[in-house]
Design a protein around this nucleic acid. Structure first.
Lengths: 195, 195, 195, 195
DNA sequence: CATGAATGAGTGTTCATTCAT
DNA sequence: TATGAATGAACACTCATTCAT
């Protein structure tokens, strides 16, 4: 995701500018929400507004790029945990970390939500990356008996999005997460409890 | 919540218009999100823009009124279930119904999120109503052994907001809800599972 | 100026309302300027906005009525001074009093300005009243030798408007008035001074 | 006063537009009063409404800029008269010229009034410029014996504002000015006249 | 390529005026 | 007659997007 739609590679300084804009956008959207103005992003990035629009022809596309970058970063982190010693800890730890990050960055929640839906083309492209990496973490945790066997990656993604939202908006991070985690763990006499 | 801040009760026709505006706003915000324009609301309500602003002097106040109405309606429904035959079914059924409604109405999610935080004055007034009604449902379900004893109303509200968000954005309603519900149920050997 | 344009006389309560509105308008316009809203006037008068518009069909006409009332009151005061013992003191005292009143009530200045120009029909009707009364004061003062003989009522009205404006906006009441008054007094060797 | 608050100098075309807007605003405000709409100014200037707001972020700031420009121009003209041959003629001539200009441009009167009061920050900055220049003219005229010695620049400014108002609104330019000028001239037997 | 001035549709809000109650 | 709800044109201001420099 570091080259433009047209085939030609970017000049070094153009690439640097693109990165500056992306970083600025991420921070601005995190702090002020996605309704922050493009000018604000340009200001923070230290470039002209024209430069922002050269790299991202619409505000929509800039937002998308931010979300994609976030998803890719998350996917990368999940990837690294693939060979962790304790699969259960790897899975739940990753989940927790994502949620706590979302608590301060709205955009993370939005990214997760869209990744699950494939609503936008670009996030749709990045979503599967995270889903696959998360799926791998999930499988290993299930094999180790730390997570119940009857849930799939899609549900976990949705749950992740939901908990991220709750963490950012409705307070009560730890306690709510505990409920979700308990719901993800195996529980032999569950059938009985369900009545 | 059907009379204006000023005190004096509204004339019959004014009340009717107020209701029309509120209903239109609820639908418009549900479909287009809360950034929909006030003009759109007026159009949908079939009244002039001035009428909307007469009843709700700022867009903010209109949004608040919508959220409050939603919360009050939910609280009312919870209230009615207070004496249901099966406390577990009452609690989980209510939870499900709220979530499925949120799937089509973004505003419900937002209302729940704000109700948990007391961010805005008005929703702060309505939030406790829902929280109390939900708390009553929760207690009865806990007494009946359908819900684990160590969760409080606050966590359940947050969970409700999170699941509503997930339902509306990230798809996968039923399956995700199943996980949350299992997390809310008692499970004797949980300690063991947590390792 | 206490009956409507149509011939029929007003009912007692209607007349009372008209007076209340006029008094409220005078105060509101004095404090907030003539751009204050008609609603504000209605509120201050303790009547509905419809009542204001029944008595004064446009905001313009309400403003006019206020100005006319002010002019009439000033004319009345001038009238009373007609037989004062010291004609010079009567003239200059009246002038001073008008100016100091204008310092706190913008509307007075506006009334004076319009009275001089006959711009609006209604004030045009009231203007001559003041001009005549002021003219009488002026003549007596001239006869007594307190005011130079070569100025007319029109110039004095204009000077009055100007000094009222200066008093309300540009501070320095007394000192500026002193200059104007000296300009109005006879001065035998004026021709010499003018070079 | 030809560069924006931000510091960096404007591009040539931007400067041209800024000037066009300022000129248009001056004319529009002169003709329609300061309550004329910003759109009207844009239309007259032949630019988009956004351009007006880019140069003057609020209507208030646009109005201020107009007043400041007027004051600076007047100050400049006064400056040029500093070394005129006849100090009395310089002083009274300048006074007359200002007043006759105000007769057609309301904004001039407003600028003078505000310059005397230092109400707004920006006019406060330009006001002293005019006051100083006018003060110099005044002093020289006093030294030449053309103006009485016991008046200061502040009173003259206030008188100027008042006469400008009278000229614009209440008609009777020349005659009224004659009175004011006579009040400003020395008159040995004034004490007697005041009796 | 980078810049930032120009654009104008769109937004929330106000207010004089009308008219049903 | 009095009321105040309804109306909609008008306003100040914002912002994504374009394009001349």
């Amino acid at each position: 995701m570091t080259s433009p739609a047209s085939g030609r590679p970017l000049r070094a300084d153009a690439l640097r500018n693109r990165a500056k804009v992306l970083a600025a956008a991420e921070e601005v959207f995190a702090v002020q929400g996605t309704s922050a103005s493009t000018e604000e992003v340009a200001r923070k990035a230290g470039v002209g507004i024209g430069t922002v629009f050269r790299h991202f022809p619409t505000k929509e596309s800039l937002l998308e790029a931010v979300l994609v970058a976030l998803l890719e970063r998350l996917a990368g982190e999940a990837e690294e945990l693939r060979s962790a010693a304790d699969p259960g800890e790897a899975f739940f730890g990753f989940f927790s970390r994502v949620v706590s990050r979302a608590a301060t960055k709205q955009a993370v929640t939005e990214a997760l939500a869209e990744a699950g839906v494939d609503a936008r083309a670009a996030t749709g492209r990045a979503g599967p990356g995270l889903r696959a990496a998360l799926g791998a973490l999930l499988e290993r945790a299930q094999e180790a008996g730390a997570v119940r066997a009857d849930v799939g990656a899609a549900e976990v993604m949705a749950l992740l999005a939901g908990m991220s939202y709750a963490a950012g908006r409705a307070g009560a991070r730890e306690d709510v997460l505990r409920i979700a985690f308990d719901g993800l763990r195996p529980c032999p006499d569950r059938a009985a409890a369900r009545g």
